[in-house]
Design a protein around this nucleic acid. Structure first.
Lengths: 251, 251
DNA sequence: CCCGATATCTATGTATACATTATCGGGCTT
DNA sequence: AAGCCCGATAATGTATACATAGATATCGGG
């Protein structure tokens, strides 16, 4: 999916849609990662409904670990469990995406502020600056896919430096949902010159250890980028978008 | 614990440490609420370690629902599960509290901004203003306990009006942890005149539908209040505080 | 022909049985 | 005497069996 960031960055808090070292995990984790992977890559399409039994059969496991995995996915917002109606891969309505981006960006802004407070080591700064360099090259060459991967890496690397484990953990839980939304609009995305500029601004503020400036810069960045993403989605979905107003989190 | 807010406010997203309508819940939920209650009220003290079997016996249930409840509590940060070593009620180090407050306030600030964007109905504004009135009376009479309950109600009522279900849900998950931290410093807390003033400011900005002002006001409020809380904790814990630097979320 | 009550069937929720594996203690070796 | 290895023990992880409750379909009545 991406070039596997130079240093440890974020593997732990942000389980990417990859299925590498899944061999000797407990079954529950295998089930979780497997299903998550299938959902994020679209192999399990939104709307797909499966019973616990069917999932168990699909993964060649018993219901117990599959059930626990499903509960975790539900709390993560990727599926919804309706008792006696099975486990359904959630569809992302416009409203859902708005909610997700709101939470995600609020947390990310705080993370960036913390990084600014803490400051960057030379290596960290170079890593981040290097990411921005590469992104700008991809912007120039119009390779929006690679740009997007690096964008994600930039944001995630920032977060991984914030020093707040809970913040990272919760951001990780929202990452999957945000990823799906991102994939929806990727092909529609215009040239990200503006984002590139904003990233430089953010990095500069963080590097200067100016917490307020960093917070403000990242707030502006996310506000603009999120609004753009929503606008693109709105222009794309409406055709036959049911935009289900289903309330109630899976809890 | 508190006077049961005038309108629906928040019961759903913020499971208070109360054990009222637990009768006809599924066993897993009973277990979850029961254990959560015991932890938040201190009946299960930090450091207490129990095996799945022991918990099951304690609650007169089989391991299955108890286990699922324990996993949920672990994801909520109230206990940590160490395979083959049992389920331990987490202790709150200074660092833990700092992490929790960071996440909690970041989310709450966003929630308040959303409420400001959305605006308040007449009834909603009156409810909130009424809470502030009562808080100020308790400040005057020095009843810090009642003040704290209303403070929590004010913040939670705000959140319940933000219109973002996921935001409410995640805040609810952090509420328990935040509650524990709050209880630790309650007796040490000085007269909350400053908070009262800030609350008025926040409510005014929200009522005026000035999103930026509301965000800024709430940010200031939380930054100051959180710093104060941490300072109080620091002055209290150090005596014999191990301040475990145990990293690694339960995940 | 439609509506409603009931019975059956099935998916989940819970309990229990079984397998796996880490930990702890004892005994052996050096 | 100290350290290591091995095995017994026990706790978790997983599978399965059982109970419950909800949904559907059928049958009878209006």
């Amino acid at each position: 999916m991406k070039p596997e960031g130079a240093f440890r960055s974020n593997r732990a808090t942000r389980p990417r849609p990859t299925l590498s070292g899944v061999e000797h995990m407990p079954a529950r984790e295998r089930a979780y990662h497997d299903l998550r992977y299938r959902i994020l890559t679209g192999r399990l399409a939104p709307g797909t409904t499966l019973l616990e039994t069917e999932l168990a059969a699909l993964l060649s496991l018993s219901r117990t670990p599959v059930r626990e995995a499903a509960i975790k996915l539900a709390e993560e917002g990727l599926v919804s469990i309706r008792a006696r109606h099975g486990i359904t891969v959630r569809d992302l309505s416009l409203r859902d995406v708005a909610e997700i981006l709101d939470v995600f960006s609020a947390l990310e802004i705080r993370a960036v502020a913390l990084v600014a407070r803490r400051g960057l080591s030379r290596a960290e700064h170079e890593h981040l600056a290097n990411l921005l360099d590469r992104m700008e090259r991809h912007t120039a060459s119009g390779d929006i896919g690679r740009w997007s991967d690096l964008d994600d890496d930039f944001h995630s690397s920032m977060v991984s430096l914030c020093g707040n484990g809970r913040l990272q953990h919760t951001l990780g839980e929202y990452w999957g949902q945000q990823f799906r939304a991102r994939m929806l609009v990727l092909p529609l995305r215009p040239s990200p010159h503006q984002s590139d500029r904003e990233h430089r601004e953010i990095l500069a503020a963080v590097h200067a250890r100016d917490e307020e400036a960093a917070r403000a810069a990242h707030l502006r960045h996310r506000a603009r980028a999120d609004a753009q993403q929503l606008a693109l989605l709105k222009s794309r979905l409406p055709p036959g978008a049911p935009d289900k107003t289903d309330e109630e989190e899976t809890a």
